[in-house]
Simulated scan of single mutants.
Amino acid sequence: MADYQNTPVEDTAASTQMFRAFVDEPQPKPATAPSEGSRTGLIALGVIIALVVIAGVVYLAVK
Rank of each mutant, 00 (worst) to 15 (best):
Gln17Met: 10
Ala14Gly: 09
Ala31Gln: 12
Ser15Asn: 13
Tyr59Met: 03
Glu25Tyr: 05
Asp11Glu: 01
Ala31Tyr: 08
Glu36Gln: 09
Thr7Leu: 14
Val52Asp: 05
Ala61Thr: 07
Leu51Trp: 08
Ile48Cys: 12
Leu42Cys: 07
Met18Asn: 12
Met18Val: 11
Ala14Ile: 05
Pro26Glu: 06
Gln5Lys: 14
Val52Leu: 12
Val23Ser: 00
Glu10Phe: 05
Ala61Arg: 09
Asp11Ile: 00
Ile54Cys: 00
Ser15Pro: 08
Val23Cys: 06
Ile48His: 06
Met18Leu: 09
Ala44Gly: 05
Ala31Leu: 13
Arg39Leu: 09
Ala50Tyr: 03
Thr12Gly: 03
Gly56His: 02
Leu51Cys: 09
Phe22Asn: 06
Lys29Ile: 03
Ile54Pro: 00
Ser35His: 08
Glu25Gln: 12
Pro34Leu: 09
Val58Tyr: 03
Thr32Glu: 09
Leu45Ala: 15
Asp11Lys: 01
Asp3Asn: 06
Gly41Phe: 07
Ile54Glu: 00
Arg39Tyr: 12
Ile48Gly: 15
Gly46Val: 10
Val62Leu: 08
Lys29Phe: 06
Ser38Met: 13
Ala44Lys: 09
Met1Arg: 13
Met1Leu: 15
Ser35Arg: 12
Pro28Phe: 00
Ala31Lys: 15
Val58Leu: 04
Phe19Tyr: 11
Thr16Ser: 13
Asn6Met: 07
Phe19Asp: 03
Pro34Lys: 01
Asp24Leu: 08
Val57Trp: 02
Ala44Ser: 08
Gln5Val: 11
Ile43Asp: 11
Thr12Gln: 12
Ser15Ala: 14
Lys29Pro: 05
Gly37His: 08
Tyr4Glu: 07
Leu51Val: 09
Leu51Met: 13
Ala31Phe: 14
Ser38Arg: 12
Thr16Leu: 15
Ala61Asn: 04
Ala33Thr: 03
Gln17Phe: 10
Asp24Met: 08
Pro8His: 01
Ile48Phe: 10
Ser35Phe: 11
Phe22Asp: 08
Asp24Lys: 07
Leu45Tyr: 09
Thr16His: 07
Val47Leu: 04
Leu51Gln: 01
Val62Ile: 13
Pro8Phe: 03
Ile48Arg: 08
Asn6Arg: 05
Val52Pro: 08
Ala33Tyr: 09
Ala2Trp: 15
Leu51Gly: 05
Ser38Phe: 14
Gln17Lys: 07
Val58Thr: 07
Ile43Tyr: 14
Gly41Ile: 04
Ala44Tyr: 12
Arg20His: 07
